[in-house]
Computed example of a mutant assay.
Amino acid sequence: MGRDHVSVNRDVWDADAPNWVRAGERLWGLDEPVWGNWNHTDQGIGMLPADMTGMDAIELGCGTAYVSGWMASRGARVTAIDVAPQQLATARRLSAEYDAGITFIEGNAEKTGLPDASFDFAVSEYGAAIWCPPEDWLTEAWRLLKPGGRLAFLGNHPLSLICSPEDGAPCDTKLHRPYRDMWGADWTKVEIDPSGICFNLTFSDWMKLFSKIGFSVRKYDEIYAPDWADDTRGAVPAEWAKSYPVEQIWQLAKPS
């Protein structure tokens, strides 16, 4: 890869921040969480603890911080970090409007500078989960969690990456790049809808990395498009995502 993904992705998300304001406002206003491109309900997924009263929680790569807002509404003391100041501007405004009391940090989720063992729960919905190298941000999440702490993250399914054409066109049923030694993709110079530098791994490499760091896997979900969907979201057509998983959710634990 060899490029400064942090500054590249910061610039991409700062420039795109105005396009996420309305979505952030809508999601902050929900009583219950929804997840992924097609806003699946939390039923059967359970990414967040139902009661977070008294918990210290952190969102790694928060964007407009609606996930942080949901955690605050469940009783958590929440810290949220993001590298993009324009995204944080929206997050801070909405947090103030909802009196969420979230502590915001402008910084890199791979190197937060926060004390060891500070949090009971960590989460990333996209955010660090796809825009940071897995070993870097997962090692940081491990360091931040207290013994017995939990981490949940949602990101692109590996199939959605290997089925994505290299010019940035929507994914299809062909294999466009190798699965072996997968690391992610640089979308900055593609012909169609250029964006940033994202990261992903093969299933075996995810599992090896969790084991290397020390995490155990509590739960794993593969997310498909719902039956009613007929559009394209995040360069993924609904018809494709009804047959192939578009997203994955890992729920991990740090031993007590």
Score class of each variant (00 low, 15 high):
Met1His: 05
His5Ile: 14
Ser7His: 08
Val8Leu: 09
Trp13Gln: 00
Asp14Ala: 09
Asp14Gly: 05
Asp16His: 15
Ala17Trp: 02
Pro33Trp: 07
Asn39Leu: 13
Thr41Ser: 11
Leu48Val: 12
Thr64Gln: 12
Ser68His: 02
Ala72His: 08
Ala76Pro: 14
Arg77Val: 04
Ala89Glu: 15
Ala96Gln: 11
Ile102Glu: 01
Phe104Ser: 00
Ile105Glu: 00
Gly107Lys: 06
Asn108Trp: 13
Lys111Glu: 07
Ala122Val: 08
Ser124Lys: 14
Gly127Arg: 12
Ala129Thr: 08
Ile130Asp: 07
Glu135Ser: 13
Asp136Asn: 12
Trp137His: 07
Trp137Ile: 05
Leu138Ala: 01
Thr139Val: 09
Thr139Leu: 12
Thr139Met: 06
Lys146Trp: 02
Gly148Leu: 06
Phe153Met: 11
Asn156Pro: 15
Pro158Tyr: 11
Pro165Phe: 05
Glu166Cys: 07
Gly168Tyr: 12
Asp172Gln: 06
Arg180Met: 05
Asp181Ile: 11
Trp183Lys: 10
Gly184Tyr: 14
Val190Lys: 11
Glu191Trp: 15
Phe203Lys: 11
Phe203Gly: 04
Phe210Val: 04
Ser211His: 10
Gly214Ile: 09
Arg218Pro: 05
Glu222Tyr: 13
Pro226Lys: 10
Asp230Val: 14
Asp231Pro: 11
Gly234Arg: 10
Ala235Trp: 14
Val236Asp: 01
Ala238Glu: 02
Ala241Gln: 11
Ala241Val: 13
Lys242Gln: 07
Ser243Asn: 06
Ser243Cys: 08
Tyr244Val: 15
Tyr244Asp: 00
Pro245Cys: 06
Leu252Cys: 02
